[in-house]
Amino acid sequence: MNNVTEIIISPEATIRDAMRLLDAGAQRIVLICTPDFKLLGTITDGDTRRALLRDAHMHDAVSSVMNTQPLTVTGETTRDQRLKLMKEHDLTAIPIVDEQHHVIGLETLHQAMQPEQRENPIFIMAGGFGTRLQPLTDRCPKPMLRVGDKPMLEHLIKQFVDHGFRNFYISTHFLPEIIRSHFGDGSAWNASIQYVNEDQPLGTGGALGLLPADLPDIPLIMMNGDVLTKLNYAQLLCHHVNNRFDATVCVREDEHRVPFGVIETENKLITSMVEKPTYRYKINTGIYVLNPSIVRSVQPGQRIDMPTLLEQHRQKSKRIGTYTSYDYWLDIGQMKDYQKAQKDIDVYFKAEKEDVSR
């Protein structure tokens, strides 16, 4: 109600009173309510202009010109749904009401377009040697190689921040000082960044054991620092929570077409013949959502890969699920991938920025 009480007036107030509130406020709407905040109607600049053109007087009661059937939403309406309604009806604000039609808030277009702030930790693996990209990685950690105008790790962090995430942990090993000196505490990106360093490589899952014990008791997103993607992390997190998974592996569909006929045999006899078949797979993108119980199961200094860690928990009847992404994704593992990233970055990441701003 913080942004609402100052724009609420009684039905006995005058049109002049409403116009003063409209002139003084930034929401461009006034709510007409009973003393217990039951919404009776709304009035905007357009309503007052139309009323005066109909020869209404400034001292007339605002109830005589208010919109008695304003569009409203409830507390259960999602931000995306509210934004869609405001865009469809060309509104800059929409009242939020309870079941009895009492005002409990006001959603503005500006608020709806801001990313929801999320406290979930983001853990980025940035300690690899990047040997397949030598000599570029001889004196530079692979995630710090520039793609376009900034390091690929910076693209990654900025994308998370644009989607409302702010709490980062970065695992380092090879040339950690380059990463630390560039990002510092993360404040330049409106984020908080802490570092854990692997004295010895611990595998794709071992660095989880180096995270602080006081992490919030909510799911953590973990991923490799050499990936470019337009993945919607908020949707991934929502999918994980809604399905009550203990861990979620983000996957994407890939296919391989064999350019020859494939013959299968048994005891030298042909059992099937398929001409140039196409095989489809789900491949691991290196992006995970992990519940705290999975994170805490890795001991400090333990060397373990993520597939092994997740298989151990699957055998203990933990719910290990998948999320299939159809978004842009590129694992920069080889020189040809790095060259492709240079071509893709402007097209895909400019589009991502526009999507977030809308």
Results as ranks from 00 to 15, higher is better:
T34N: 06
R166V: 06
V274S: 09
Q159V: 07
P219V: 07
V62M: 02
Q27F: 07
I294C: 00
G225N: 10
D226V: 10
G148Q: 03
S171F: 07
E198P: 02
I157M: 12
S293V: 09
L231D: 02
R166I: 08
E99Q: 15
L145E: 01
V73C: 14
V289H: 03
Q312C: 10
L228S: 05
G105Q: 06
P35I: 02
P201K: 10
L211Q: 04
I122R: 05
R252N: 10
I345D: 03
A61W: 04
E119F: 05
N284G: 02
Y169E: 01
P35D: 10
I157Y: 02
M152L: 14
D47E: 12
E266Y: 11
F183T: 08
Q81P: 05
M58A: 13
I304P: 00
K340C: 07
D17P: 04
T322N: 13
V62F: 02
K336R: 14
V356I: 15
D254G: 09
D355G: 06
L133I: 05
N3T: 10
L228W: 07
R16I: 08
S64E: 13
V262A: 11
H155I: 01
M125V: 03
V161M: 12
R180E: 11
M152C: 08
D80S: 11
M152V: 07
V103G: 02
I221G: 00
T229K: 03
V249K: 05
H102P: 05
R314F: 08
E177Y: 11
N242D: 14
P70V: 05
V4L: 13
L309K: 00
V289T: 14
H101S: 14
R49V: 08
M144L: 06
P135Q: 15
V62I: 15
L52S: 10
L208I: 14
G46F: 04
F260P: 09
V30I: 13
K150H: 00
L53K: 13
H110K: 13
G41I: 03
E255K: 15
P95I: 07
K318W: 15
V251D: 14
G333Q: 11
I43C: 01
R296F: 01
D327I: 01
S357H: 14
F160L: 06
L309R: 04
F160Y: 11
R319C: 09
L106W: 01
A191F: 02
T324R: 11
I304M: 06
I104W: 04
D36K: 09
H240L: 08
N197C: 13
G186P: 03
I332R: 00
Q200G: 09
M1G: 14
F160V: 08
R166E: 09
I157S: 09
H57L: 11
F260R: 13
K276G: 04
I7K: 03
V298A: 03
E354V: 14
W329I: 04
P95F: 04
V295P: 00
N2M: 11
L22W: 04
E352I: 10
L31T: 05
L22R: 06
A61K: 15
R16H: 13
E311V: 03
